[in-house]
């Protein structure tokens, strides 16, 4: 059994999800260099044996936490994207789904410290590469939707830039959720951003 199996496919038990979040807090307070699997076990209310069974090292733990975080989001967003063949309804649905997922994590109190985890992994070469690969993988899928639907745009060459713009909007929304922006305002942000796509669609759309 691979050490990453517990989170394969983005599925994770609520216990392990809480454990992962507690562990990121340990990294923040104790430091990545100093934290041991024992510290992580104490913080998460699990046993050292349990963690060692799943993660051989704290680097593997970080990689797993990152994969969990991104897989959970991207898998859900991919399935929403696949439901819509036209670009506008697809982007609209993904924006709304993204808001809901981000708010769920905010309300549950998890993922608040994932920015710190991401800054930690940036200081480790292998983990940094893993983080970029995960983000690029998620981004590529979204970009490919714009490329597939470029025929719907006035200017086909705008497809990539529009995809990057929406990636920016997703990141911005994620931060605004953490800043406590209201549900209503988050939806207004999504609606405003959709005007950009609307202005780039051919009239027939």
């Amino acid at each position: 059994m691979s050490s990453l199996d517990p989170i394969h496919g983005g599925e994770l038990s609520p216990e392990l999800e809480t454990a992962l979040d507690s562990c990121v807090k340990v990294f923040m307070l104790q430091g990545f260099e100093h934290a041991t699997l024992e510290d992580l076990a104490n913080a998460s209310g699990t046993s050292k044996d349990f963690l060692e069974e799943h993660f051989a090292t704290k680097e593997q733990f970080c990689a797993a936490a990152l994969r969990w975080y991104f897989t959970k989001f991207y898998r859900q967003l991919r399935s929403v994207l696949a439901l819509h063949s036209e670009l506008y309804p697809a982007v609209e649905a993904v924006l709304y789904e993204f808001i809901e997922l981000s708010r769920e994590q905010y309300t549950a109190g998890t993922a608040l410290r994932f920015h710190t985890l991401m800054d930690i992994v940036e200081l480790d070469e292998e983990l940094s590469a893993e983080l970029r690969a995960l983000k690029v993988e998620g981004m590529d899928h979204f970009t490919s939707k714009f490329t597939q639907c470029k025929g719907e745009l006035h200017d086909h060459e705008e497809a990539l830039a529009l995809a990057q713009y929406y990636a920016t909007v997703f990141e911005g929304l994620s931060v605004m959720v953490q800043h406590g922006m209201s549900h209503n305002d988050l939806y207004k942000m999504a609606s405003l951003s959709l005007e950009v796509l609307s202005n780039h669609l051919r009239k027939a759309n």
Partner: peptide, 22 residues
Amino acid sequence: EILACYVITVIEGLYELVKLGK
């Protein structure tokens, strides 16, 4: 007001994409 919030949202997003290496 809502446009100001929109610009702030975009700025936060730009920061993250620069970090991503765009």
